[in-house]
């Protein structure tokens, strides 16, 4: 190797060495000794959403929205989207569902800035909520009294009201589809009682939604009423893919016939 070339490389390596020492020193100064806090003001966000023809679906809610129990993990939301795509619509989906979400936590989630922004851009809002409020992981089942149920119901309805108000505050146009509860326990000994409770719960939800002309209550109770075990996942709580498809058929039909493409 040429000695001049080696010299150049050596000198260059020495320079890079200095550069890295400088970087290390800078890190030590910033992180160990402490850096001046620079005040930060966020840049003006461009709120202008790109205008496209696509149908924006925002899915909110609990494990049903997430798709727990579905082999393909799509849930009813995924099947609805699939069906709409098959109809030739240009659909985009944002699924914000979180397992185990209660109406209280959904009301909190919906207050987040970014969630609001996304809801504001949505054309269709799909929601499942309330199942975790009512069933509390199976606890409610063991001691149903009218008193305890009405307490849960009251809290749920007030949260739902807040959720709807928050959605309408950022988006007055979108159609909201709220899927009702079904009774996964109706073949249990206490089935008659839980069914009655779910029916009452659903009718109150429906009444609340009736105040908003663009909010649609989609019943699922009847879908699961007969042969409930055929439509439930092995956890005996969440729907399986057949159950999800039944739910999706109903929602997709509603979207294509009415509140869909405008």
């Amino acid at each position: 190797m040429h000695s001049k070339k080696v010299r150049i490389i050596t000198v260059f390596a020495a320079f890079t060495c200095l550069l890295w020492i400088f970087g290390l020193g800078w890190t030590v100064k910033d992180y160990l000794i402490g850096a001046a806090h620079s005040a930060y003001s966020p840049p003006a966000a461009d709120e202008s959403a790109a205008q496209t023809n696509e149908l924006k679906i925002i899915a909110l809610g609990d494990s049903l929205t997430r798709g727990t129990g579905d082999i393909e993990g799509k849930g009813y939301v995924g099947y609805v989207t699939d069906q709409l795509k098959k109809e030739g619509l240009d659909v985009s989906l944002i699924n914000l569902g979180i397992k185990g979400l209660t109406s209280e936590r959904l009301a909190e989630q919906i207050k987040e800035k970014e969630i609001k922004r996304q809801i504001g851009q949505g054309d269709i809002i799909l929601m499942t909520i309330g199942g975790n409020d009512l069933f509390l992981g199976g606890q409610t089942l063991t001691n149903i009294t009218d008193d305890s149920i009405s307490k849960l119901e009251e809290a749920y309805l007030s949260h739902l009201k807040a959720i709807l108000a928050d959605i309408r505050a950022v988006n007055t146009e979108a159609t909201i589809y709220l899927l009702g509860l079904y009774d996964p326990f109706n073949e249990f000994p206490e089935g008659a009682l839980t069914s009655k409770t779910v029916r009452g719960w659903n009718s109150k939800t429906m009444e609340l939604l009736a105040e908003d002309s663009k909010a649609v209550f989609v019943p699922t109770y009847d879908l699961f009423q007969l042969n409930v075990n055929d439509y439930l996942f092995t956890d005996h709580f969440h729907p399986n893919e057949v159950g999800y498809r039944l739910m999706a058929d109903r929602v997709a039909a509603l979207i294509t016939s009415g509140g869909g493409p405008r």
Binding site: L19, W20, F22, G23, L24, W26, T27
Partner: peptide, 12 residues
């Protein structure tokens, strides 16, 4: 700046 600091640490 962040990258130069990272490289300093990587060097070390």
């Amino acid at each position: 700046q962040y990258i130069i600091q990272q490289f300093g640490l990587a060097w070390f």
